[in-house]
Amino acid sequence: MKFRLSFDRNTFKNEAIAAWLFLSPALFFLSLFIFWPIAYLFYLSLTTGSFTVSGTEFIGLKNYWRLLISPDFWQVLGNSIYFTVATVIPSIVIPLALAVLLDREIPLRGLLRTAYFIPSITSLVAVGLGWRWLFQNDGPVNRLLASAGLTGVEWLSSTTWAMPVLILLTVWKQLGFNLVVFLAGLQAIPVQRYEAAELDGANGWQKFWYVTLPGLQPTLIFVAVTTAIFTLRSFEQVYVITGGGPLNSTNVLVYYIYEQAFALFDFGYAAAAATVLLAIALILVYFQVTSWGQND
């Protein structure tokens, strides 16, 4: 008995050593490219200065205080929340409806699936240039409105309409990825649940509400969180289409960080704003992980 216990302990110890040996290359690169940059970002947020001969100076939490009292930062944060919420909702509803439709046997189903996924693999910079052309004052959208007898809109120079253009582009870009995720989630729902619902006399809407949606709950959480993170890190469409204008109305957190760091060379302040963005992303990931744990 003692020999068996000693053997089990030695086996466990050897397996643990082997596991750490196999994990060590991944942990090394994870520390080098993720943990160390995050730690250095937090350190940089506690300094002022730039990467010049004069170097940086430690100032503690003053950069975070500057964020708290900055009207521009709060406007950018409000823009980011508006941009994210207004993007996430249609990025869930539209792909979900399309996934339910394309999960059935309909003509050209494979072609439609491919067509909807194409925006996800196109260059956001190239697409942004195309959308800027579409929505310029004398662009095709305004010409279409004029042909219908409607007054054109100054889309990109309006504090009201510039953000909806960015939201529409982001929803269009995210649609294909979310569609594929929802289709995979629908395939994981057992057919027996739908058969049982039909035996109970459920119609199409009742099957969707009481079978499809509960079966897609983990998928819905995943899509919501990934879309929110994708939207929070949006930069290209803002840079290409509006440049944060007009009057800072389309400036979002990532573009604001870029301006502070590479236009004003205020690296410590930009690092503090980036740390806030990182904290928001970690909260979203924590929400996703805990939600999955509750489902399990």
Rank of each mutant, 00 (worst) to 15 (best):
G152K: 05
T48E: 11
T290N: 13
V85M: 02
A18P: 13
S249Y: 05
G201M: 11
I283M: 11
W161T: 09
S291K: 10
L253W: 09
E154F: 01
A279E: 01
I34S: 13
W292Y: 15
L23E: 02
G139C: 04
Q288D: 08
D138F: 10
I189D: 07
Q294M: 09
S91G: 06
T11V: 13
V88H: 01
E236C: 02
V53N: 05
L175T: 11
V100T: 13
V88Y: 00
S6Y: 12
G55H: 02
T275N: 04
I118D: 08
I17G: 02
I221R: 02
A162K: 04
L168G: 14
E259L: 13
A19I: 13
F12A: 15
T52Y: 04
S70M: 09
W133N: 08
L264V: 08
G244E: 00
Y258C: 10
Y40M: 14
A39Y: 13
I94G: 00
K62D: 13
F12G: 11
A197F: 01
I167G: 05
I118H: 07
A196R: 04
G201E: 10
L150S: 05
G130S: 10
R4V: 09
T48K: 10
T250C: 08
G55W: 09
P164K: 12
R132M: 14
L169V: 15
L98V: 14
L232Y: 01
L102M: 07
V125C: 09
K207E: 11
S234I: 00
S54P: 00
G243D: 06
A126Q: 10
Y210V: 01
L175A: 07
T151R: 11
L156P: 12
L134N: 04
Y210G: 01
W133T: 11
Y258N: 13
F135T: 09
W209H: 12
I229A: 01
I167A: 07
V93Y: 05
D296A: 12
S123P: 07
Y269V: 07
S45T: 06
S31G: 15
Q294T: 09
V53W: 06
L284N: 04
A162R: 03
P190F: 02
L264C: 00
Y239D: 11
I89G: 02
K62P: 00
G176F: 12
Y43K: 11
Q192F: 06
R109V: 15
R193Y: 14
A148P: 00
F33L: 12
V53M: 10
G149K: 05
V153N: 06
L284T: 07
G215L: 07
G55A: 02
V153Y: 02
I229K: 02
F22G: 08
T231N: 01
Y210E: 08
L68W: 12
V141A: 05
T151V: 12
